[in-house]
Structure formats: C-alpha cells, structure tokens
Amino acid sequence: MRWYGTGGRARRLPGRPVPGETVARAAGVGLGLGGRPVLSGVELPVRAGEVLALVGPNGAGKSTLLAVLAADTRPDVGAVEILGRPAGEWSAAELALRRAVLPQAATLSFPFVAREVVRMGRAPWAGTEREEQDEAAVREAMAATETAAFAGRPFSALSGGERARVALARVLAQRAPLVLLDEPTAALDLRHQELVLRVCRERAAAGDAVVVVLHDLGLAAAYAHRVAVLHDGRVTADGPPAEVLSADLLSEVYRQPVEVIPHPASGDPLVLPVRAALK
C-alpha cells in the first residue's frame, strides 16, 4: 500500500472492497434540520457489489441520509463508518478517493466544457500513481453515459438531461469504491433512465457499492439488489425488491393505494397506483 503526501498529510490509496463487504454504515443515525427531526434511528449497511435504492415519499429523508452516508452532513446522534473507519476520521482528500457523490443539481459558475467537467472527477488522484489513468477514466465514463458527442460543448449550453449525464460521468471518472447518486434519473428521458441504472449495475458488478435515491419504484424494482423504504425519517423496510415492495407497505407509506403485480416476463414487481375510473 502506497502513501502520498498532500497538504502536510499522507494519503493512503484505497484498495478494492471484497464482494459483500460493508463499505459504509449508518448506525443509530438521527438528525434534525430547521427544528424538526429528519432522520431517526437509522440503521443501514451499504455493501460492495450491490445497488441499494433509497425510496420513499417527498420529505422522507432520502437525500439527507445520502448526504450523511457521504460524510457531507454530520448526524446529531449515531455514527457513520466508511471503509471501516468513522467518517470523521477521513480527511476531505482521503474521502474523495473513497466515495463519489452526485447531488440533485449540477451548476457551474465558469464556462467549462463537458469534458473538463468530467475530468474534475480525477482531481483526487493528482500526484498519485493512478493519475496515469486519467485519460482512460474520462474516456470510459463519457462513453458509458453517452456524452462523448458533446465533449467540447460548454456545460452551460447543455440541456438539463445532458448536464445530468455529464455530472454522472464525472462521478464515474472518479473511480471511487462507494458511489452515491441523488435522483440521477430525474431529468432524463426513458432511454437514459435505463442507461443510468444499467451503469449502476455495472459498477456494482465491478465491485463498487452503489446507493441511489429514486422516485421511480419500477426502476428500483428492476435494477436494485436491495431497496430501503424511508418513511418519516426511518427505514421502514430494507431487503430485496420482491420482499420489500408490497402493496400494503407502499400504500401506507405513500398514502396512495397501489397494487403490486409481477412483471409477466421478468417477475420484477410492478407498482401501479389504484385510480378511480376516468371519464
């Protein structure tokens, strides 16, 4: 294991996690914001080789939990571990080698072109032996997200969906073993929603731990290995989609009657709202 100095502090490069290894963990996490509880008693492991989908209604705490798992937000109570160490013991530079985060919105104040934005994901590796992987990492990330065609266009001139895919390419180029994505499909058309979730599965198959906040329960059912349902700041259920996505639970959590039926070909759960007859 090699060490590299930065700002007077040595950085140890991360190895690859073992499939099934707990890469991150929330233990008894609680957090209040604006005078109200947002997370309460959250227990959640994140494992290498899995796509974990966080689902639930608006205000359930999904994005807040993602930020806590990323060590971007410190909980009021409880603890978060990343790769076996308390999250607070990692420096910012060390964290950037170990987890990559896609926020809900991607904005830039300077006129960078798309390829330059993706290359920002390689910044944590500067000065290390893995810096030589920069070009390959950027090229592969842009190919995976179908963004190479507009690599030279200003980020500000891209559509919302194109920006979202460039931002995802930046995260992929970072090549961190923990990938945290907040609503990566929100601005995307049908084709690119499917593409993003296929990329998540590919990263998990390569050994990464992937956590993704989703509103589309169909995508969660089709692509996630595990689904954690959040409700009022708590993890109400956590497990394989076929076990977790039940009509009774979802109807209660979303306050909307639903039915859940198996897909006729794949067997994946299909979640359908129960609607009154439309005239």
Rank of each mutant, 00 (worst) to 15 (best):
229 V>S: 02
159 S>N: 10
180 L>G: 03
217 L>P: 00
236 T>A: 13
253 V>T: 12
188 L>Q: 06
231 H>V: 07
237 A>Q: 10
220 A>L: 02
170 R>P: 06
172 L>S: 02
194 E>A: 13
208 D>M: 01
203 R>H: 04
163 R>L: 00
232 D>K: 14
176 A>T: 02
166 V>M: 09
258 V>G: 14
148 A>S: 15
150 F>Y: 14
186 A>F: 11
145 T>F: 08
207 G>H: 02
158 L>W: 01
155 F>K: 08
186 A>N: 11
169 A>P: 00
148 A>T: 02
175 R>N: 08
140 E>L: 14
236 T>E: 13
213 V>T: 11
135 E>Y: 15
213 V>Q: 01
244 V>S: 11
154 P>C: 10
148 A>I: 01
217 L>G: 03
200 C>W: 03
177 P>C: 06
162 E>M: 03
204 A>G: 07
217 L>A: 06
238 D>N: 13
153 R>S: 06
221 A>F: 03
139 R>K: 15
159 S>Y: 03
234 R>I: 05
172 L>I: 08
175 R>D: 13
185 T>V: 12
240 P>G: 09
176 A>Y: 03
222 A>I: 00
213 V>F: 00
212 V>M: 03
138 V>D: 15
144 A>Y: 13
203 R>S: 03
218 G>K: 01
201 R>L: 05
163 R>H: 01
233 G>D: 03
203 R>W: 04
138 V>W: 15
187 A>F: 12
162 E>L: 02
171 V>T: 12
193 Q>Y: 04
163 R>T: 00
187 A>D: 11
262 P>I: 13
175 R>S: 01
207 G>D: 07
218 G>V: 00
207 G>K: 03
249 L>C: 05
186 A>K: 04
244 V>W: 06
223 Y>L: 02
151 A>F: 01
258 V>Q: 14
215 H>F: 06
256 Q>V: 08
206 A>G: 07
225 H>A: 07
201 R>T: 12
163 R>K: 13
149 A>Y: 08
138 V>R: 15
190 L>H: 12
215 H>P: 00
188 L>I: 11
243 E>Y: 05
162 E>S: 05
144 A>C: 13
232 D>T: 12
136 A>Y: 15
166 V>I: 11
136 A>T: 15
183 E>V: 09
254 Y>W: 12
235 V>D: 05
188 L>N: 06
204 A>K: 05
223 Y>D: 10
215 H>C: 11
